[in-house]
Design a protein around this nucleic acid. Structure first.
Length: 519
RNA sequence: GGCCCCUUCGUCUAGCGGUCUAGGACUCCGGCCUUUCACGCCGGCAACACGGGUUCGAGUCCCGUAGGGGUCACCA
């Protein structure tokens, strides 16, 4: 049997982090078994512009390197892969169920069913539809029709026995049929509902394994019923635990941003992203820019591999120590048996740790390439960059080392790219380190030392400063902080001598002069 | 509330009856390195939810309890 898995997003305009993990597991499972991964768009009942709402989702998957064998933009033997365009097929299936007597026309108004539901609730018993307005034959339907009622199609669910199935992750699961509702599968206007459509599409697309979020576990009996009623043998099921919120155990949701911001680690993740977003003029709104949405990470300059690796370990592990995987290794080692049953909470710190490790393994050249678009968006370098930018950028990135944790962090080093008279001084740092007895004089005299340094590279600069402090009989700390603030405008940053060398003599002198003037 | 699912350090997890005085990673806390900030290095704190069984022996199997969560649409 060929393994065929699918991920079926509805076009909501964004890619949810939990959805990505589900998709990733589907993708890995398909790749591992040499099968196909299919993207199907569940746009039943969507009124919005599907094209527009789908694009961010497709872009997200492409960025993450999760490719699909069949689906939007690539098509395939079962095209179209949009549920809305398969409406006729779904109607046909509904008719088939009707013909087989496994579904019926129901003439109840929604007020009537709601009333039944309410009664059941006040009487504290399980709600189960009375089937009072059920019509299985035209004769039964006639009086309702005469009243001018409209009908929907409901599943005629079994009312005894159990639905038992084996879940690849949770083992044997069972539900009482009697607790299942006669779910509506087709509306009065003829349009079909998700569960019918989904089962039909899965069968038509020859999906072998339905790997999805655990919230669908309780939907499984009705889907099995539909599949069996239609004469399909149901696919294998695997229900993944959901991704839980940071520091909590509830399912993570993009709507609870305010709550998550109270979590220190999450806030740190968000604040960092917001800082970068502001610098590149990216619009920040909870709907589109939010760590629960994958786009956030791309926007801030995370590595797709880091995110994917992190997400992989959220609910799956290989053994007691391996944490880093290349894509090939993931594919090689992935298995549903090693997926956990309990929800795993999203930990921003651990994600950052993966990001750092991946960045450390990246060649300088690649880091520079990643940084360029950020500088362009923020307007610090021309697009395309002039030819002298590359060497300078390389030096900055090299000197910055692990300080650049995401590509966007380059924007926190713009002191090396702005004109001398545009350099902004951090007021607090300036107050503390420059506007201080002794520091001003030392800075003034060291300025003159620097003026004679030749060649102006990091080693010579360092040698100059070392002999300067020896001559003055001071400790390095007494001058270097003032020097840093004068030259970079900040109290913290890359190695001092790297900074001097990158800026060059003229800039350094000009900046020191400017600092001395504003004292 | 009904049904279903879940339960090992703060977090992600290893553990599939004895090798567990429970291992790793992240975080946190010390210390080192050091011109700042990162990084790096060294060390430390920290968990089998509880109660019954089964067994010579239980984190590992069974049953309860508690807690957490999911789901109960003419949404997907």
């Amino acid at each position: 049997m060929t393994v065929r898995t699918r991920f079926a997003p509805s076009p909501t305009g964004y890619l949810h982090i939990g959805g990505v993990r589900t998709a990733l597991f589907n993708w890995l499972f398909a790749r591992k078994h040499g099968g196909q991964f299919i993207l199907r768009i569940d746009d039943t009942d969507q009124e919005r512009n599907v094209e527009v709402a789908l694009q961010p989702i497709l872009d997200g998957f492409r960025w993450l390197g999760i490719d699909w064998d069949e689906g939007p933009e690539v098509d395939g033997p079962h095209a179209p892969y949009y549920q809305s365009r398969r409406a006729e097929r779904h109607k046909q299936a509904a008719q088939q169920l009707l013909d087989a007597g496994l579904a019926y026309r129901d003439y109840a108004t929604s007020e009537e069913t709601q009333a039944e539901r309410a009664t059941a609730e006040t009487e504290k018993r399980d709600y189960i539809y009375s089937r009072k307005w059920m019509a299985e034959t035209d004769e039964q339907a006639a009086p309702f029709e005469a009243e001018g009622r409209q009908c929907v199609v409901r599943l005629k669910m079994p009312r005894e026995g159990k639905c038992e199935f084996h879940d690849l992750i949770r083992g044997d699961v069972s539900f009482d049929w009697a607790k299942e509702q006669d779910h509506v599968i087709q509306r009065a206007d003829g349009s079909c509902l998700y569960h019918l459509a989904s089962v039909v599409d899965d069968a038509d697309f020859k999906i072998s394994h339905v790997i999805r979020a655990a919230e669908h576990l309780s939907n499984t009996p009705r889907q099995i019923f539909i599949a069996q009623s239609l004469g399909y043998s149901p696919p294998e099921f695997a229900h993944l635990p959901y991704v839980a919120e940071p520091g909590g155990s509830a399912k993570i949701s993009k709507r609870k941003l305010d709550k998550y911001l109270k979590n220190r680690d999450f806030k740190q993740l968000f604040d960092h992203g917001e800082r970068i977003a502001n610098l590149i003029g990216h619009h920040v709104s909870a709907d589109t820019f939010n760590p629960v949405i994958v786009d956030f990470y791309r926007e801030v300059g995370y590595l797709a591999d880091a995110l994917v690796n992190y997400l992989l370990l959220l609910g799956w592990s290989l053994d007691d120590k391996t944490e880093e995987f290349t894509r090939d290794e993931m594919i090689q080692y992935f298995s549903l048996e090693r997926v956990n049953k309990a929800p795993a909470s999203f930990d921003p710190q651990k994600l950052s740790a993966f990001q750092l490790r991946q960045m450390q393994q990246l060649p300088i050249k690649q880091k520079v390439a990643m940084a360029v678009p950020f500088l362009q968006k923020a307007g610090y370098i021309a697009s395309p960059p002039s030819c002298d930018t590359a060497p300078k950028l390389t030096r900055i990135v090299e000197a910055a080392g692990d300080r650049i944790k995401t590509a966007g962090d380059i924007l926190e080093l713009i002191e090396f790219l702005v004109a001398d008279d545009q350099l902004e001084f951090d007021e607090k740092a300036f107050e503390k380190r420059v506007r201080k007895d002794g520091a001003i004089d030392l800075l003034r005299s060291f300025r003159d030392v620097l003026a004679d340094v030749e060649p102006f590279d990091d080693e010579t600069c360092e040698a100059a400063l070392r002999s300067f402090i020896e001559l003055k009989g001071i400790k390095i700390g007494e001058i270097i902080h003032a020097l840093r603030v004068a030259v970079t405008g900040k109290g913290v940053g890359i190695g001092m001598f790297d900074a001097l060398a990158i800026l060059g003599k003229d800039s350094c002198l000009a900046r020191i002069d400017r600092a001395l003037e504003r004292v």
